[in-house]
Amino acid sequence: MTKDSSKNIRIVQAFLMLSILGAGAVAKDFSLDPVQVLLAFLGGLSAQYICLRLLGIKHAGYQSAIITCIGVSLLLRSDNLYAHALAAAAAVISKFSIRISGKHVFNPANFGVLIGLSLLPGTWISAGQWGSGTALAFWLIAFGSVSLMRLRFQLMTWSFLTAYVGIFIFHRVLWMGYETSVLLHHLENGTLLLFAFFMISDPKTAPNHTAAKLLQTLIVAGTAYVWQFEFYMTNALLWSLLFASLLVPVWDRLFTAPQFEWRSFGGTNNDVVSPSHNFRTADARPIAAPVR
């Protein structure tokens, strides 16, 4: 595998997420029906196919849709069979339809899961379902996976975790007197890790400029902290990211930098970047690039 090929990174990412999904479903009683996972894929991939056809996009694949479907399956729980399919479809459609300056606004899985949670009956998110054994495995996988990627992909993850842990230590441990074990307990939360490694780090919905990326993670971490610990509301990370995503177009306007583009061919260490005004749709490559 070419170490820095971004295509390969997405394959690695999909593989890791699938492993977590499989291990969790088998070992941790995710109360997730395999049929729900299949239907999530059916919904998400069909939506991708239809959107690509309707928009006439030819040079795009299904990798991001697959990752979205896994993300929806990992986070969303439901007592019916249609919720996962609809949430995954909504996630993929949002990628093509909710766009500012040629860039989709919301991380698709984040959007799909919250749409499912808010609009569909019989849905919930089990934030505490992972348990500490899974968390350890998760950290190992996460560390292993980031070693395959360049700093560019890890920046948001580590900056978010630093901000979150920093706020936690200063406010909760030092000021409020909570024991350090409470912090460690929160770091075992699979939802936090999934969020940090696979959601906020999504380069397609992140601000383009490095400074803006850091600012964005600070805002997401701070909002999530207040949401959870001051207002006692659930699913803080997901809501925080959803709302903060609306700021990304503002950051991109204030801090100019080339826009990220996934590259679908190997052999080079460079991610394809394109000026944002050239960019039209997710997974589409407006610049000429040979596709193997």
Binding site: W124, V182, L184
Partner: peptide
């Protein structure tokens, strides 16, 4: 005290099974 370092926080899910 070690295994439950924090108070219990709950959510009401939409699960009715």
């Amino acid at each position: 005290p070690d295994t439950f370092p924090e108070d219990l926080f709950f959510q009401e899910t939409q699960d009715r099974a």
